[in-house]
Design a protein around this nucleic acid. Structure first.
Lengths: 203, 203
DNA sequence: AAATAGTTTAACCAGATGGCAAAATTAATA
DNA sequence: TATTAATTTTGCCATCTGGTTAAACTATTT
């Protein structure tokens, strides 16, 4: 494999990511991806055979980033405060690097839910472990009695929603000022974990 | 206007809603909507001129349902507990009637953010009023000191996210069992308001 | 019943879209 | 350098898509 091959491949992937993120699968056009990549449309097919295959490559990568990567911390023996803080801070940080990912994943999973099943196995996500970890903290009296699934979804909701709803929130609450919204998202790292801890810690 | 006109129009709208909700604007096909409505494709154009116009009708209606309708309660003089409970319960109830709305709105707003500006005026949504109401409760010492925008987004996130992420959550946490997930969403009416109140009430 | 207006259908079109085959160009190998 | 392999471009096609037009059909009015 020559340098050029890897190079072209990467250029295509970057262009495809940009277009797929912005327009979604159905809205994306192979021609537009080719233009974005500065090359001929047929080259896309030469490297990736079809629109589907190219999309798959983008989706897989995005999905992996979307799945929280810090299960270990969630089931370790550190304090519940540290767990929450680590999870929220890490997750918001990761998403901020590619903030279009949440809405992209949510949209495409809605369009084709079957894909997830296979995807989950590949990524090796084990929500049961997190659930069990939470239950453990409850049993040990570290936090109040709460349905672990509700708590888990609450945490995810508070982290993810501001990104999924970004265009709406930015216009509604920040006069469409991107800078303000960016700062707001940074603030949330502390704000969200504080909000959660307040709610679940035993007094 | 004959009975038939209104009737056909409504049949088209229902069919269009179904298809647009499932596939989004780009994925939806006028032919598919016509099939769903059991009529000729040209009829859609006879009644709605274009795909855009038809979509607009669907989107406007969906957007109005997506915007919380209980601002009054949020700025009234009832206790903060009652406010939160009323808001959450009402909002989750409304969305459960048409649970596809959140992902649909989030997706389409991402595809075309400009639309919101005009839309907000039509619907008459005034987030500033809610913000001010929250600030008032803070000033009166009813709840802890918190950035009202964070609190507002937290509330929305906790209500909306489980619907936006439904396909993912249902598979990840409920073995793809729709009944279980439905019950789970019902539980959230109490769970979410409790979670919020726990977090913000002064001790 | 004749005329008019409203509704529905069938047939079609121009442009776009994903994809492909073969030629042209460049790189690698002998 | 000659030959083979890899990469890129050109040109094209079958299909689909939103949209239109004119004809057919139905209900209403006179």
């Amino acid at each position: 494999m020559s340098l050029k091959e890897t190079d072209t491949e990467q250029i295509i992937l970057n262009a495809a990511k940009e277009v797929f993120f912005k327009k979604g699968y159905d809205g994306a056009r192979m021609q537009e991806i080719a233009d974005e990549a500065g090359m001929n449309k047929a080259l896309l097919h030469y490297y990736f055979r079809s629109k589907d295959k190219l999309f798959e490559a983008i989706f897989n990568d995005a999905f992996q980033r979307f799945v929280p990567k810090i299960v270990e911390k969630m089931i370790s023996n550190i304090s519940i405060e540290e767990k929450i803080e680590a999870f929220v801070d890490n997750y918001i940080t990761v998403i901020m690097e590619v903030p279009q990912i949440p809405i992209f994943i949510l949209t495409e999973i809605n369009r084709n839910p079957e894909r997830i099943v296979g995807m989950m196995k590949k990524v090796g996500m084990q929500p049961d472990l997190i659930i069990a970890g939470i239950q453990n903290d409850i049993d040990e009296g570290k936090i109040i009695d709460i349905n672990p699934r509700h708590l888990l979804i609450n945490i995810l909701a508070l982290c993810v929603f501001p990104f999924a709803g970004k265009p709406l929130m930015q216009i509604m609450l920040f006069n469409n000022n991107p800078g303000s919204y960016h700062d707001f998202l940074l603030e949330r790292k502390k704000e969200v974990s504080q909000f959660i801890i307040n709610s679940i810690k035993n007094k």
